[in-house]
């Protein structure tokens, strides 16, 4: 298969397959098996190493994720911000730092899962798949940041337009063609992650609490309609 054919498959067909799987999968799981939506916390089984693995990983990945999202949604503002080199350096350095934090946390998570017998028991085959994919993803991400620097600028001018072209249903592979293989691997890995998402523990990201922040402290449920005008 020629490299353009692979490109076509991975960057023009796979994204749509992934998207369909992602939406149907998460909605279907939520509909049919709401019970299975959980963070599947393992803090109860191992409480010391847990902190040093799960916390850095999440702070790292959430920062990185937010960075990708901003670059995707408002690429021009990133370019404007980067117009001054100092600001570009700051952005690049903090991006790399967050990536490394994620990597350290992830390695911690994997080691903990492997070495702590009680935690290993509650680790499914899908969990291992997710950790492998995440490891690939985070490693390639960090390597891209090191070997192809100034990503905050070229993401906005190359990757964002490509992603937008996907969303407008006119995938433009011209942006892809010139990319280094490391970057291609990173993008392909992202699609793979989205594809396994509905069938893995990652669904916990979709149910992070939010109305909580605004609700009154106590929750009361009534089975019989109660007279109007009463509080919780």
């Amino acid at each position: 298969m020629s490299s353009t054919a692979i490109d076509l498959l991975v960057f023009a067909v796979l994204p749509y397959v992934t998207l369909v799987v992602f939406f149907l999968g998460t909605v279907g799981r939520y509909w049919n098996r709401p019970f299975s939506y959980s963070s599947y916390s393992s803090q109860f089984l191992e409480n010391r190493f847990h902190f040093w693995a799960v916390v850095p990983f999440h702070y790292g990945i959430l920062t990185v994720f937010a960075g990708h999202l901003v670059a995707f949604l408002v690429p021009r503002s990133i370019l404007a911000w980067n117009a001054q080199p100092v600001r570009l350096y700051i952005l690049e350095a903090s991006g790399l730092a967050a990536g490394l934090l994620t990597l350290v946390g992830l390695v911690g998570i994997i080691l903990r899962r492997y070495s702590e017998p009680k935690v290993r028991i509650v680790t499914s085959r899908m969990d291992w798949t997710v950790y492998a994919l995440l490891l690939l993803q985070v490693t390639t991400g960090v390597l891209v940041a090191i070997f192809h620097p100034w990503g905050s600028s070229w993401f906005a001018s190359v990757a964002s337009p490509y992603l937008w072209s996907l969303f407008t249903f006119s995938p433009d592979l011209a942006f892809i063609a010139g990319m280094p293989w490391l970057v291609k691997l990173h993008i392909g890995g992202a699609f793979a992650l989205f594809a396994v998402f509905p069938y893995s523990r990652l669904v916990h990201i979709l149910v992070v609490p939010n109305p909580y922040l605004w609700r009154r402290p106590q929750v009361v449920r009534w089975y019989r309609p109660r007279p109007a005008g009463r509080g919780v």
Binding site: P209, P211, Y212, V219, V220, R221, Y223
Partner: peptide, 8 residues
């Protein structure tokens, strides 16, 4: 998550 509640 609002999973815990008191029955009215």
């Amino acid at each position: 998550s609002g999973a815990l509640y008191k029955r009215g």
